[in-house]
Simulated assay, not measured.
Amino acid sequence: MPKVKINNVELYYEVKGSGNAIVFTHGASWNHRQWKPQVDELAKQYKTITWDVRGHGQSSLPKGKVDSEDFSKDLIGLLAHLNVKQVHLCGLSMGGHISLQTAIRHPKFVKSLILIGTPFTNTYNWFEKLFVPINRWSSIFIPMRIMAIIQARMLSKFNSNNKQYIKESVTSIPLNHWIRIWHAVSTMESGDDLHKINCPTLILQGDHDTMTERQQREMAKRIPLSKLVYIKNAHHATNLDNPSQVNNEIINHLSQIEAKLQ
Results as ranks from 00 to 15, higher is better:
166 I>G: 00
167 K>C: 08
167 K>H: 13
167 K>M: 13
168 E>N: 10
168 E>T: 02
168 E>G: 06
169 S>T: 05
169 S>M: 01
169 S>K: 00
169 S>A: 12
169 S>D: 03
170 V>A: 02
171 T>K: 09
173 I>D: 07
173 I>H: 08
173 I>W: 02
173 I>R: 00
173 I>V: 11
174 P>M: 00
174 P>G: 00
174 P>Q: 00
175 L>E: 09
175 L>V: 06
175 L>G: 01
176 N>D: 14
178 W>N: 15
179 I>S: 05
180 R>F: 04
180 R>S: 05
180 R>A: 03
181 I>F: 04
181 I>T: 01
182 W>T: 15
182 W>S: 11
183 H>K: 12
184 A>G: 01
184 A>E: 05
184 A>N: 03
185 V>M: 04
185 V>D: 08
186 S>Y: 03
186 S>T: 08
187 T>E: 08
187 T>Q: 08
189 E>R: 03
189 E>M: 06
189 E>I: 03
189 E>F: 11
189 E>H: 12
190 S>P: 07
190 S>G: 06
190 S>K: 01
191 G>H: 05
191 G>A: 06
193 D>I: 00
193 D>C: 13
193 D>W: 03
194 L>G: 00
194 L>Y: 02
195 H>E: 14
195 H>C: 09
195 H>Q: 15
195 H>V: 11
195 H>G: 10
196 K>F: 00
197 I>K: 03
197 I>F: 10
198 N>K: 13
198 N>W: 01
199 C>W: 06
199 C>P: 10
199 C>H: 03
200 P>M: 08
200 P>T: 08
201 T>N: 02
201 T>I: 03
202 L>V: 03
202 L>C: 09
203 I>V: 04
204 L>T: 02
204 L>G: 09
204 L>C: 04
205 Q>M: 09
206 G>Q: 02
207 D>H: 01
207 D>V: 02
207 D>N: 14
208 H>P: 08
209 D>M: 05
209 D>Q: 00
210 T>L: 15
210 T>K: 14
211 M>L: 09
212 T>V: 13
212 T>Q: 06
212 T>R: 05
212 T>M: 08
214 R>Q: 10
214 R>W: 13
215 Q>S: 04
215 Q>N: 06
216 Q>F: 06
217 R>K: 11
217 R>A: 08
218 E>M: 10
218 E>C: 12
218 E>Y: 13
219 M>T: 15
219 M>I: 05
220 A>C: 12
220 A>P: 14
222 R>A: 07
222 R>C: 04
223 I>G: 04
223 I>K: 01
224 P>L: 15
224 P>V: 12
224 P>S: 15
226 S>P: 05
226 S>R: 08
227 K>D: 11
227 K>M: 09
228 L>Q: 04
228 L>K: 06
228 L>Y: 04
229 V>P: 15
230 Y>E: 14
230 Y>H: 12
231 I>G: 03
231 I>H: 01
232 K>M: 12
232 K>P: 15
232 K>L: 12
233 N>L: 10
233 N>A: 13
233 N>Y: 12
233 N>P: 11
233 N>H: 11
234 A>I: 07
234 A>M: 04
234 A>K: 08
234 A>C: 05
234 A>E: 13
234 A>F: 09
236 H>Y: 11
236 H>M: 14
237 A>K: 07
237 A>C: 14
237 A>W: 06
238 T>W: 02
238 T>A: 12
238 T>D: 10
